[in-house]
Design a protein around this nucleic acid. Structure first.
Length: 229
DNA sequence: GTCCAGGGCCGTT
DNA sequence: AACGGCCATGGA
């Protein structure tokens, strides 16, 4: 299936989502850096529903520790308790503290310094950090850094396998496939928005139709998909 | 009670 | 390189 048709059919079904997983965070009164909230959210939401993460983010805010320096120095046992609702709290607490220490020590707690680099350098840097794999790194680059990179998640892989698209089911291959195609089709448009939008559309598709147990009946891609046949 | 959620790490083959 | 076990809570 042509990625452009794919994009357009999903857009026709779900519309302009202007989807941003941490959207609500931007409209609440708080004096913290929204980019940092995105980074923390990206770690916390690993294999975890966002509703569970919201509780944690709110808790961190209420305790006024949702900033690099506070989390870097916060007692780990206390942190585990604060993030409990996000699951995997032992490893996540450890990883969060480690990440904050890195931003504090290497970038003087200044995210401008960190994001003021080329995407490839930022990505390499992120992937070296314990607890940050490809999807988390790319989410941080796209949503916190506002830089154009296409995020591949479990939903994307599932959909790619079922349609199917002519790519191997590896992260990098799928990412390159969509990036090169979308770049070509949407010259002139802001790639950050295109990648953001397509990811949002895929999530909607996967949540509503392309579930673990797919509901193919009214799927907008029924005619294009080989899975249900 | 069971399933699943927008992963990543580590040990084993 | 690929795969399985593991980590943990909360909502459907």
């Amino acid at each position: 299936m042509d990625p452009k048709i794919f994009y357009e059919k999903l857009f026709a079904e779900f519309g302009d989502l202007d989807w941003w997983p941490m959207d609500h965070l931007y409209h609440k009164e708080n004096n913290s850096d929204p980019r940092f909230e995105v980074i923390i959210g990206a770690i916390l939401t690993q294999n975890t529903s966002w509703s569970n993460v919201e509780k944690t983010i709110d808790k961190l805010k209420r305790n006024r520790v949702l900033d690099i320096d506070s989390l870097a120095s916060l007692d780990e046992v206390k942190l585990k308790d604060l993030i409990r609702s996000s699951g995997f709290f032992n490893q996540k607490a450890n990883r969060l503290k480690n990440i904050c220490k890195i931003f504090k020590n290497r970038y003087d707690s200044n995210l401008d310094l960190f994001f003021d680099n080329k995407i490839s350098k930022i990505r390499t840097e992120l992937l070296k950090i314990n607890g940050i794999g490809p999807e988390t790194a790319d989410s941080i680059i796209l949503y916190a850094g506002g830089k154009p990179i296409f995020v591949v998640d479990a939903y994307t892989k599932r959909v790619c396998k079922r349609i199917p698209f002519p790519v191997e089911n590896s992260y990098e291959d799928i990412q390159k496939y969509f990036q090169s195609n979308l770049k070509q089709y949407y010259k002139g448009k802001k790639l950050t928005e295109v990648y953001n939008q397509l990811h949002a559309l895929i999530v909607e598709l996967a949540k509503n139709y392309c579930k673990t147990k797919p509901i193919c009946n009214n799927c907008p891609l029924k005619k294009d998909c080989s899975f249900s046949k």
